Amino acid sequence: MGFKLLSKLLVYLTASIMAIASPLAFSVDSSGEYPTVSEIPVGEVRLYQIADGVWSHIATQSFDGAVYPSNGLIVRDGDELLLIDTAWGAKNTAALLAEIEKQIGLPVTRAVSTHFHDDRVGGVDVLRAAGVATYASPSTRRLAEVEGNEIPTHSLEGLSSSGDAVRFGPVELFYPGAAHSTDNLIVYVPSASVLYGGCAIYELSRTSAGNVADADLAEWPTSIERIQQHYPEAQFVIPGHGLPGGLDLLKHTTNVVKAHTNRSVVE
């Protein structure tokens, strides 16, 4: 069995187990497998329904001669939608809004960016022009300005110390501490036991640490421990890039980060 097929099978099995364990909360999309990078042309966006009122959005972007996937989250909030992270750029984010209108038909009224990198804030200006209120932590807003990236308009308070959590509509926002970046936030959907790890969490097929220019490698494993301790009931975990899975993604990420750190020390 090929690795790609095995990865998709694991996603399907995880979703099936969740649907059985929580039949009222989960209505997993039966329309197909989780979209992969090879299936999404740059400039297009796919939506994948995880649970009743919960979707991931998947886009792709060219970077350094390669094409990478990027995940975000959409959560229903009454007759409105909360968006977590842009679709990595203005063109993708405009396509995301169009796809949401086509498939869901509810307005996106608020959006949260989970850290300051372009795959999370690139497209904020498109959201703002569409009347979406954009939010991020003060740290993310400051770092985005320093980096020359787009800056969300509103500040999220109460997320300055490791372990801080605040309720934001249908989700809980959690600051686990520094990891992929010093400002990275985690998003949890309690009604569906869905954990969105953003770039602080890796997919299972990833074996290298990737972009760690703004990471705190020493603190990252401790931050992941905080996530595990705060959300032990999480059933569906979405990484910032690639295929979702279960809580095993947290341990896998820790292993990859520690291996990278150990290699760096040896070198």
Results as ranks from 00 to 15, higher is better:
123 G>I: 01
198 G>R: 01
4 K>M: 06
255 N>W: 08
119 D>W: 03
51 A>R: 04
34 Y>C: 13
29 D>Y: 05
186 I>F: 02
70 S>Y: 14
137 S>W: 14
3 F>T: 05
264 S>P: 12
68 Y>A: 06
80 E>I: 10
40 I>L: 08
55 W>F: 14
202 Y>R: 11
192 A>Y: 10
62 S>A: 05
150 E>D: 15
92 N>F: 01
254 T>L: 06
211 N>W: 13
193 S>Q: 12
187 V>K: 01
212 V>L: 10
171 V>F: 01
74 I>T: 12
100 I>R: 00
6 L>A: 10
69 P>Q: 00
170 P>N: 10
71 N>L: 06
224 I>C: 07
10 L>N: 03
230 H>Y: 01
57 H>T: 06
145 E>I: 12
164 D>Q: 14
27 S>C: 11
219 E>I: 08
61 Q>V: 09
229 Q>A: 13
245 G>R: 12
24 L>V: 08
220 W>E: 08
86 T>A: 14
136 A>N: 06
35 P>N: 14
161 S>M: 13
255 N>Q: 09
82 L>E: 07
148 G>H: 02
42 V>I: 03
176 P>H: 01
79 D>G: 12
27 S>D: 05
66 A>Q: 07
67 V>E: 08
266 V>D: 09
163 G>T: 11
225 E>T: 03
204 L>F: 03
82 L>Q: 12
132 V>M: 02
105 G>W: 05
136 A>V: 11
97 L>Y: 01
68 Y>F: 02
114 T>D: 00
169 G>F: 13
215 A>C: 10
149 N>M: 15
197 G>I: 14
250 L>S: 07
46 R>D: 07
206 R>D: 12
191 S>W: 08
189 V>M: 14
100 I>M: 15
224 I>M: 07
152 P>T: 15
158 G>Q: 04
174 F>H: 15
206 R>Q: 08
233 E>T: 05
107 P>N: 10
138 P>R: 15
18 M>Y: 03
201 I>H: 13
46 R>L: 05
264 S>F: 03
22 S>A: 09
62 S>N: 14
205 S>L: 08
112 V>L: 11
3 F>I: 03
265 V>D: 08
146 V>T: 09
72 G>K: 01
216 D>K: 06
6 L>D: 07
12 Y>V: 09
84 I>V: 14
44 E>G: 08
3 F>N: 14
151 I>G: 10
233 E>V: 06
38 S>F: 12
257 V>F: 01
81 L>H: 00
134 T>A: 12
253 T>G: 08
24 L>Q: 15
190 P>W: 04
126 V>M: 14
17 I>N: 04
219 E>A: 06
72 G>E: 02
101 E>T: 03
243 L>F: 12
55 W>Q: 05
237 V>N: 03
259 A>Q: 03
137 S>K: 14
109 T>D: 08
254 T>P: 11
199 C>K: 02
206 R>L: 14
1 M>R: 07
130 A>E: 00
190 P>L: 08
158 G>P: 14
34 Y>L: 05
199 C>L: 03
205 S>G: 12
52 D>P: 05
6 L>V: 07
149 N>R: 06
176 P>T: 07
105 G>Q: 14
114 T>V: 00
137 S>P: 08
264 S>R: 05
5 L>Q: 07
263 R>H: 05
126 V>F: 09
102 K>P: 13
231 Y>I: 01
169 G>H: 02
26 F>M: 05
71 N>W: 11
204 L>M: 10
233 E>F: 10
60 T>M: 13
2 G>H: 15
186 I>Q: 00
145 E>A: 14
220 W>P: 06
182 T>W: 11
109 T>A: 05
73 L>F: 03
211 N>R: 08
80 E>Y: 12
131 G>A: 09
119 D>M: 02
33 E>Y: 15
152 P>R: 14
15 A>V: 04
95 A>F: 15
76 R>Q: 02
6 L>P: 03
260 H>I: 03
213 A>Q: 14
37 V>R: 08
256 V>E: 13
138 P>A: 01
244 P>L: 13
209 A>W: 13
175 Y>T: 13
198 G>S: 09
172 E>Q: 08
40 I>E: 07
148 G>A: 14
134 T>Q: 15
126 V>T: 15
99 E>S: 12
90 A>F: 15
173 L>D: 02
160 S>Y: 14
11 V>N: 09
120 R>E: 08
149 N>E: 02
228 Q>P: 02
70 S>V: 09
80 E>G: 11
146 V>W: 09
40 I>Y: 15
192 A>N: 04
58 I>V: 09
236 F>Q: 03
22 S>H: 05
109 T>I: 13
176 P>I: 06
204 L>W: 14
144 A>K: 08
186 I>N: 07
196 Y>H: 02
213 A>H: 13
123 G>V: 02
116 F>L: 07
15 A>L: 07
258 K>R: 07
212 V>Y: 11
104 I>A: 12
28 V>A: 06
228 Q>I: 07
49 Q>R: 07
77 D>A: 02
153 T>L: 01
6 L>F: 04
18 M>R: 06
79 D>T: 05
126 V>K: 15
238 I>E: 11
215 A>W: 11
74 I>R: 01
80 E>V: 11
266 V>F: 12
6 L>Q: 01
183 D>K: 01
159 L>S: 07
12 Y>M: 14
159 L>I: 13
225 E>Q: 02
255 N>P: 15
97 L>Q: 00
142 R>E: 04
209 A>V: 11
168 F>R: 09
11 V>M: 05
37 V>S: 06
44 E>N: 03
227 I>W: 03
146 V>I: 02
2 G>C: 04
149 N>A: 03
156 L>Q: 12
122 G>H: 01
157 E>F: 14
23 P>A: 08
51 A>F: 11
164 D>R: 12
120 R>F: 08
166 V>F: 06
199 C>S: 02
262 N>F: 09
47 L>P: 08
123 G>E: 02
9 L>W: 04
152 P>W: 13
189 V>T: 09
75 V>K: 14
214 D>C: 11
199 C>N: 02
65 G>R: 09
138 P>F: 00
8 K>W: 12
76 R>L: 03
126 V>L: 06
198 G>Q: 05
206 R>Y: 15
30 S>M: 11
116 F>Y: 15
248 D>G: 07
246 G>H: 06
154 H>R: 10
207 T>Y: 04
177 G>N: 15
266 V>C: 15
222 T>V: 09
191 S>L: 11
232 P>D: 05
233 E>R: 06
210 G>A: 12
60 T>Y: 00
41 P>T: 06
222 T>Y: 05
44 E>A: 09
243 L>R: 11
197 G>M: 03
103 Q>I: 14
239 P>I: 13
257 V>Q: 02
70 S>M: 06
257 V>A: 08
53 G>E: 09
93 T>K: 00
203 E>L: 00
52 D>M: 11
227 I>G: 12
67 V>I: 10
20 I>L: 03
72 G>R: 01
83 L>Y: 00
260 H>N: 02
229 Q>V: 09
2 G>W: 04
249 L>C: 13
154 H>T: 00
236 F>E: 09
226 R>L: 02
206 R>V: 07
84 I>S: 09
150 E>V: 11
181 S>T: 08
36 T>C: 14
218 A>H: 11
209 A>R: 07
171 V>L: 02
79 D>M: 09
123 G>K: 02
217 L>V: 14
189 V>G: 11
252 H>A: 05
226 R>W: 10
167 R>P: 07
9 L>C: 04
22 S>P: 03
194 V>R: 01
201 I>C: 00
151 I>S: 15
185 L>A: 11
70 S>F: 11
115 H>P: 00
170 P>D: 04
76 R>M: 11
166 V>N: 14
18 M>V: 06
39 E>S: 08
109 T>E: 08
223 S>L: 12
73 L>S: 10
171 V>P: 01
111 A>Y: 07
17 I>D: 02
28 V>S: 04
193 S>F: 05
62 S>K: 06
216 D>W: 07
32 G>C: 01
32 G>A: 08
162 S>V: 06
237 V>I: 15
216 D>R: 08
15 A>G: 07
19 A>M: 04
68 Y>L: 03
235 Q>M: 05
110 R>A: 12
155 S>K: 15
172 E>P: 01
141 R>I: 13
133 A>M: 15
82 L>I: 13
189 V>E: 06
159 L>A: 06
78 G>F: 09
81 L>E: 00
188 Y>R: 11
83 L>S: 10
134 T>K: 01
93 T>M: 15
81 L>A: 14
199 C>E: 02
36 T>K: 04
117 H>M: 00
29 D>S: 05
8 K>I: 02
174 F>Q: 03
68 Y>W: 04
54 V>Y: 14
95 A>R: 09
235 Q>W: 13
220 W>L: 10
